[in-house]
Computed example of a mutant assay.
Amino acid sequence: MSTTTSRSTAAGPRNPLVGLDLTPFTFTRRCWVDLMPDSVYPLIGDVSLIETWSPSASAVSYEPGGGPWVGAWFSGRNRRDGREWVTRSEVVRADPGSAFAFVVGGAEQGIVRWDWHLYEQGTGSIVQQTWRLLRADPVLGDTPEALHALRDHMANSAEATLLSLAEWIAGSRTR
């Protein structure tokens, strides 16, 4: 599937979102960090560090023998609105120094894709994070309004994560 193509949800008797256009269910956030892309990439590729910055993810780790390469799987806990659940994700892009991406649920049947892109700027990097709904699944919400609320929540979480990452990098450089 092309990264610019939007899938609609699969038909099924239990899915009230059949035929929903998924185009609006995406966002991109970015921030500048005081570290070059080659040094930022290992932080992002080490998924266990995400809980250091993310307000909604914890206990993230690769499966035994896994790592930041295409085809590796990892799991982690997520929090939202007083609920907590575990997801399993597959790395679908791993380009050291420039890009890292994973799909929640796996490349074949995933429901959400997260992309990280790194761009050199001055003495540091622009870190860009994109979230995209691949498939409407009632587990994420059973109305368009619920999916919009999820997207907005995830956008706020991504902003907080990026700002926390930038602050963490700045703090680690001054120690």
Rank of each mutant, 00 (worst) to 15 (best):
R29P: 04
N15E: 13
G71I: 09
A59I: 00
Y62C: 01
L49G: 03
A94Q: 07
V40R: 04
D81W: 07
V40L: 05
S54W: 08
A94V: 12
W73Q: 08
T28L: 05
F27T: 11
S54C: 10
I50M: 04
D38L: 11
G45Y: 08
L35D: 10
I50V: 06
A94I: 12
I44P: 03
F27V: 08
T23W: 05
P37F: 04
W53V: 09
D21P: 09
I44V: 15
D46Q: 08
L22N: 06
P55V: 10
P55W: 06
S58I: 01
S61N: 06
A94S: 15
Y62H: 01
R88C: 14
F74P: 03
P16D: 12
V86C: 14
G67N: 01
L20P: 02
S56W: 06
F25L: 03
F74V: 05
L43S: 10
A59T: 08
D95N: 08
L35E: 13
P96Q: 01
Y41P: 08
N15C: 13
Y41W: 15
W69G: 11
P96V: 02
M36R: 11
R30G: 00
P16M: 09
T52A: 11
L43R: 14
I44F: 03
W53T: 09
V86I: 15
R77M: 12
E84W: 13
W73G: 05
V18D: 14
S56E: 15
S89T: 07
S39I: 03
F25K: 01
A94T: 13
E51T: 06
V60W: 00
S75I: 00
E90S: 06
V92E: 09
E90M: 09
V47T: 03
W85K: 05
A59Y: 02
D38N: 13
V33R: 07
V70L: 05
S58K: 07
D38K: 12
W69L: 13
I44S: 02
G65M: 04
L49C: 03
L17S: 12
V47A: 01
G76L: 04
L17A: 12
P42V: 13
V92R: 02
L17T: 14
P42N: 12
G67F: 01
P42M: 10
P68R: 03
S39A: 15
L35I: 08
R80F: 13
G76I: 04
F25E: 00
L22R: 02
G97N: 01
L20T: 02
E84F: 12
G19P: 01
S89V: 06
G82Y: 04
N78W: 09
V47K: 01
L43A: 10
D21E: 11
T23K: 11
A94D: 12
S48H: 08
E63P: 03
T28V: 12
V33M: 10
G76M: 04
M36S: 09
A57R: 06
S54E: 10
V91F: 04
V92C: 08
P42L: 09
P68N: 09
A59S: 13
S48I: 10
P96F: 00
R93I: 04
V86Y: 08
L22Q: 03
P64V: 03
R80Y: 11
R77K: 13
V91E: 07
G97T: 05
T23A: 14
T23I: 06
L43F: 10
N15L: 13
E90A: 07
Y41A: 13
D46M: 02
G45F: 07
D21H: 07
